[in-house]
Amino acid sequence: MIDGKNADELFTNLVRRIEALDHLTTAPIIRDVAVVQLKRALPDPLRRIELFDLVDQAVSQIVDRSTPEHKLVLATSTTWADTFGSNVRGYRADSDTLLHLLANGVFHDDGTHDHVWQRAVERLVRLRDTTPGTYNEYLEKLRHLPALLATWTIGVAAVLSHREELLATALHRPEWAVPRSGHSRQGPAWYLNPNRVLSTDGMHDMHPAGNGGKLLYPQSNWVKDTLRDPFRLVESPWTPTTTSSPIPGRESSSSTPPGATTTTASPPLSRRNSQTSGRSAALAPSEANLSVPRRP
């Protein structure tokens, strides 16, 4: 017999404790399940903490897998290319759930949860707040790749949902500088520029041109290609069209004969028929216009 408590108090507290224990033992959720949960929580003020936890858990998984033990920051000259490619693919795989949450969350949000999307980037930017004792410059810079991918995803989703003010925020905050460098703090449009995060030589090896040549801008081409999947529930599939010249950024060292036609990926039509503003294009990182579908 338990004194001092009626049945309502006893069992209500018991249920709360069981629910708390359940949250502690919950395994990482599947990406598509997380997206469904996010969409259900977005319009419900009572589920704001659930939404926060979904995004925060996805970020924590990236942070936990971004240590030098999981992503090497030092390699010999003979293993550097393999290590670089492995790290790029690893960071992209680790970020997959978060990128899908950001693409769908930002697109369907009305601005209520902008602080949640921005906090995700802030946490990822801090991955480079500490410097390893010994490291390769290009492998160490890759630690900002998840932040780069998250920022681009937020920016594209913001443009598609007619919220260019969020794009401007994403490209200006948070400010960051290399620790103990003495340099002034810059916005993400500077330090998360693909050309600063991704080595050109490394990207040539893992993202070559289809005709056997080398892309002039392999970084932005890879970012554009790898971010298509997170937007598959937001934008319809891209369809090929025939043009008289290659898209900017897809030129390779093998020139196209005069008058020849090339098949390129034509941007999809947004369900909202969004029009990219000149202001947004001016604020975007290097060749960000390649990742943002243009409207007719």
Rank of each mutant, 00 (worst) to 15 (best):
L215V: 07
D53P: 06
L98K: 02
E122P: 01
D110R: 09
L21T: 15
Y91I: 11
A7P: 00
S255Y: 09
N87V: 02
S60M: 11
E137D: 11
Y191G: 04
N273C: 06
N193Q: 03
I154C: 06
Q186R: 14
N136S: 05
A284F: 06
L101C: 02
V197R: 06
A75I: 11
P258W: 02
A288V: 01
L192Q: 05
R185D: 05
D109I: 00
T151V: 04
L233V: 10
A75Y: 01
A158W: 00
T67Y: 05
P293V: 03
I2K: 11
S220Q: 13
K71L: 08
A288N: 02
P257D: 05
P230N: 04
H144D: 06
M203N: 06
G85Y: 10
H172M: 06
H115G: 11
L290P: 05
G182D: 07
H172A: 13
E165R: 10
L102S: 03
R119M: 10
N273M: 09
H113Y: 06
G85A: 08
T243N: 11
D82C: 03
Y138D: 13
P240K: 10
Y135A: 05
S77F: 03
T76W: 03
P240Y: 08
S274L: 04
E9Q: 14
R119E: 13
P237F: 12
V121D: 04
P296T: 05
T26G: 03
D205P: 00
L290F: 09
D201L: 15
V197Q: 02
D3I: 09
H162L: 08
L149K: 05
T262V: 15
R16G: 15
R228D: 07
R294T: 13
S286W: 09
R295Y: 10
D109G: 11
D201S: 15
P293Y: 07
L38M: 15
G259V: 03
L192K: 06
L269F: 08
G259F: 01
P296L: 06
R272Y: 12
G155Y: 02
V178F: 15
A177F: 14
A58F: 01
A158P: 00
S286V: 11
H162D: 13
A168G: 11
L233H: 15
Q61G: 10
R31P: 06
L160H: 11
L283H: 01
S236K: 12
R16D: 14
S266L: 07
T241E: 14
T169V: 14
H23E: 15
T130L: 04
V106F: 00
R128N: 07
F231L: 01
D3E: 13
